[in-house]
Design a protein around this nucleic acid. Structure first.
Lengths: 352, 352
DNA sequence: TTGTACGCGTTATCAG
DNA sequence: CTGATAACGCGTACAA
């Protein structure tokens, strides 16, 4: 009434109103609201009742101003629709909630500009910290990471000792995948989804792991078994596998650099009347949610996203609170590589 | 340097500092910052320079306190990892950005408690509005939607005239899908993913559309062609289709109630050496991102998520600003059903 | 254990 | 066009 009824949030009932209604001072109301321990039960009750009756709720903006905090962090990712980042976001939000933080998700939509904007744009204010997972920025852009608020870097595109960094085991994971195929009897293992010429980023690192595994097992590297694909969609995997088979190259195992590629690879194999894993074993990467729903269900490398999420949020929270993250010297920065694990399902042959 | 580098946001340079440095008053700085038009170019320049030199940036918390707004809206969805909601979130975020709003995504993880908490929890403060897409709450919970801030409801679980509501064409969409199969020559059209006993929610509405299409075309309804499945994953679709075929029922078309089911259905068909669409045509629902990457690519009903996102954000923004959304009388509420469209791809036969 | 009074950084209302 | 000055609602020394 009275007013234009505009004002979104509170109806205007403040601590002062509550104080008056309960016959106490503002400070006492504040104490109750913030669960300050030295408040007599009697007053606490009176105040609580007044709060309920007036429908009071604290004005978060005022609190933020006073405390110099917003309780909000930004999560910057390329694209919410990619299973990998959707899962990461989901986990980060869950983890943040545990620590009383809320998350603003900022998709940069694969644009360099978007990624820079998330760091230096006008919208930057009000977040206490940033979890940053770039796909476009590269090693040359290290300087851009120098921002006002704490920042935790995720991924394998940039390496620097100037910010906290949580990385995943791309090399090791791909190596483990390849080794597993070799151990289960594969001799001609193809790799699908390579980005020729790249030296940083998931594709390059995973391909490196593939090569290391071959080398370690004494299996000779065969360029004919390497299938490039810039995009990593299902149809790319299908096309890649068809190209390979059309060229007369028949592997007995395939390492796909992500699960969607793997899905397409399996489909191509099955469409030719061959069996996965008996004729050709297939292994994926990312252990995305639907790898278990494929048929056969897909053996995959789980990058440990839970750990990535947990660590990122925790480290960021420590920085925000001005604490040193666990196990880091003053002035130094966190660098953690999260262990990946092999999730064995039906698309590969058993170990014996 | 100097300090512990802790303090999240600003280093403490305020409008007052800028004003002093530029030799003007605070108000003038404010004017410049907010692009107030009646500022002489000279002053504007002086102030701008001072801002740059001191590295000033506005304190968003203070602004929020003063304006009674935070510029943040909450988007409440069941699960970020479901393609449908990932896409919706992505679109809402993009749309909100255009209007200068930021989005906090709140996954409720399929829990009733989570959905209620998003409305009445302690974290509620500070958001100017809520876009609410419940999956657990039902018609009985209408009262819960009565919250302090503007709220826009999305989905088909609850219908009420007490809040703004953007719905999608579930009935019409499924009807269109079924009709299309019939028009392209199918005579025995199965439906996969039905939830027996349900009367609200996507499953019930889509099934209803299926029946209406049959009726309209004068094709008799055959219960044997109805395959229930509570879950809507790929493997559920595969199992459902296998059950159907194992029972000796061979349809010439399948309406899957979402794309993941459709994917499984196609796989089951292909694994038996049959062809999609020549032997059995398949149509999905949601037009999820990867329906185009299946093989054959999947004909699907696109629920018009872009429009849902655009409308929700716009309506919410109007309410936040105290405006009446376009075409709504005072005291009334928006109810909009967004048109769905049929996206024809390779999994169905052509019209002629 | 509770009350008083001030300041956080902006924006808005006036005069000038 | 610009300058004082009063809120905005809450936290917090400090005093009682």
């Amino acid at each position: 009434m009275g007013r234009t009824a505009a004002s979104g949030a509170e109806r205007g009932v403040t601590m002062r109103d509550v104080a008056k209604a309960a016959g106490v001072s503002i400070k006492t109301v504040s104490n109750v609201v913030n669960d300050y321990e030295f408040v007599s039960d009697a007053t606490r009750k009176r105040v609580s009742r007044a709060i309920d009756e007036l429908g009071y709720s604290v004005n978060v903006s005022a609190r933020n101003l006073r405390k110099g905090r917003s309780g909000i962090i930004a999560l910057v990712v390329p694209d919410l629709q990619m299973p990998y980042f959707a899962q990461l976001s989901s986990l980060v939000i869950t983890e943040a909630k545990k620590l009383g933080l809320r998350v603003i998700v900022e998709p940069t939509l694969y644009s360099r500009e978007g990624e820079l904007n998330a760091l230096h744009g006008t919208q930057t204010g009000m977040v206490d910290g940033i979890i940053y997972s770039p796909l476009e920025l590269g090693q040359d852009d290290v300087a851009e990471l120098d921002v006002e608020c704490p920042l935790v870097l995720i991924g394998e595109r940039i390496f620097t000792d100037r910010v906290d960094h949580i990385a995943t085991e791309n090399v090791e994971g791909a190596k483990r995948a390849t080794s597993y195929l070799l151990q289960t009897g594969c001799r001609r293992v193809a790799v699908v989804g390579v980005h020729p010429g790249e030296t940083v980023g998931s594709a390059a690192l995973r391909f490196q792991g593939y090569r290391e595994a071959l080398e370690e097992s004494g299996v000779e590297f065969d360029p004919a078994l390497v299938v490039p694909s810039v995009m990593w969609h299902r149809s790319d995997g299908e096309r890649a596998m068809n190209d390979l088979l059309d060229a007369g190259v028949v592997p007995d195992g395939v390492v796909a650099l992500n699960d969607m590629l793997a899905s397409g690879v399996m489909h191509a194999i099955q469409m030719r009347g061959m069996n996965v894993p008996d004729d050709i074993a297939v292994i994926g990467f990312d252990n995305s949610d639907d790898s278990q729903y494929l048929s056969p269900s897909l053996t995959s490398i789980a990058p440990g996203l839970e750990a990535v999420a947990r660590l990122s949020v925790r480290v960021l929270n420590d920085r925000i609170d001005g604490r040193l993250p666990l196990g880091v010297a003053d002035g130094a920065h966190v660098f953690r590589k999260v262990a990946s694990t092999l999730v064995v399902r039906e698309s590969t042959r058993p170990l014996n």
